[in-house]
Amino acid sequence: MSANLKLHQLRAFVQVARQGSIRAASRISGLSQPALTKSIQELELFLGARLFIRRQQGVVLTDMGDNFFRHASLVLEELRVAQEDIQQRLGLAGGQVNIGVGGSVARTLMPQVITQFHREYPLVKVRIVEGQLVSMIPELRQGELDFTISTYDRSHLDQELTCERLMQRKYKVAVRKGHPMEKARSLAELQQCEWTMPTPRGSYYRLLHDMFAERGIAPNIVVTCETFMACVSLVAKSDFVTILSVDVLDDPLLSQHLTALELDEPLPQATFYLIQRKDTALTPMSAHMAQLFRRSCQR
């Protein structure tokens, strides 16, 4: 990196890009608006390109700004990880671990892993993002997530991600207790029901989508729920049908409201992976968190 390019310029640029306005970035960073404006102007002058379009309600990235943002945010995250790595190796157990988890993992494995980790390293902050893998890819790419525990459908992302197989879990069709189709024994009987499922891209639900197509079944998916809580809340209080892991359906709190259908056709098992960027090593604390998930998956 050229000596003319300063870290404070990168930090100012990334903060403004994320917040969408200099005023909001000023509040978050504790820097004055003139200081942020000056840093960005210096950066644009150094690069010889306009990074933002100024508007009445804030700023938006130009095409060049958007491209530079991906690189700049990754550089800052790599520096953060490198600094924390040194501190942690010196025994200064601070820093932050950032992970992503699928909804079923958040409900089952995650609480005990996080509790144990916090007991061992109370000074380390933990950030947890829940959702489908497709929604977490941008943060993985930019280094904002250390790793995710998710299902994964092999794709073009193989070139930039490593996937370590952790466990397999059974899934079943789920409805509320007292649902009109509670006694159904086949997927064909459920075709006329209204379904809710996550986006199928790059996950176990892609596998289900393909399975339905192979069997000539087309569930009427009228609501797409990207979070676990939205899905189970909708199914528990309506006649929507979904597919959830058996671990989740065995949860005492959820089993009061949901029931798994005993269909004659078993659904494919879901394989969960520990997923991270190929070109990034985990910090000691992130590596320890990953190891706790490995142990938990083996039980």
Rank of each mutant, 00 (worst) to 15 (best):
G91A: 06
Q87K: 13
Q83P: 06
G102Y: 10
D158I: 11
V124T: 10
A106S: 11
L79I: 14
G143Y: 03
D146I: 02
G100R: 01
F68A: 14
T162K: 15
F147V: 09
L133W: 03
V97H: 01
R154L: 12
Q112D: 15
L157W: 10
T108F: 04
Q116H: 07
Q88V: 07
G91H: 06
L79P: 06
E160Y: 13
A72E: 09
T151W: 10
V97I: 10
P122H: 11
T162Q: 13
L145M: 05
I86W: 12
V75P: 07
H118L: 08
I86T: 14
L133C: 04
R165P: 09
C163P: 06
R165V: 12
R107D: 12
R107K: 14
Q88M: 08
I99W: 01
H71R: 13
G91I: 02
R107N: 15
G103D: 01
L79E: 15
M110A: 06
A106T: 03
L133V: 05
R141S: 07
V105W: 06
F117D: 00
L92N: 04
R80P: 04
A106N: 06
I114Q: 00
Q87Y: 12
R89S: 10
H71S: 13
R127W: 06
T162H: 13
D85F: 10
P122F: 08
G143C: 03
M110H: 09
T162C: 12
V81L: 13
G131I: 02
L92E: 04
S135I: 07
V126Y: 00
L76G: 05
V75H: 09
R70G: 09
E120L: 12
L140T: 07
G102A: 13
I99P: 03
F147Y: 12
A82R: 14
L133H: 01
E77W: 05
Q142F: 09
L92S: 02
L133A: 01
T151R: 05
D153S: 10
P111K: 06
M110I: 04
V81G: 11
R119Y: 11
A82Q: 13
G100D: 00
L90R: 11
E84G: 02
G91S: 04
G95V: 03
E78S: 14
A82P: 08
E144N: 12
E84M: 08
Q112E: 15
E144T: 05
D146N: 04
E130W: 01
S150H: 14
N98T: 14
T115R: 08
P122W: 11
E84F: 04
E164V: 04
Q142N: 13
V105R: 02
L123K: 12
Q87W: 14
Y121P: 00
D158P: 08
D85H: 13
A93V: 10
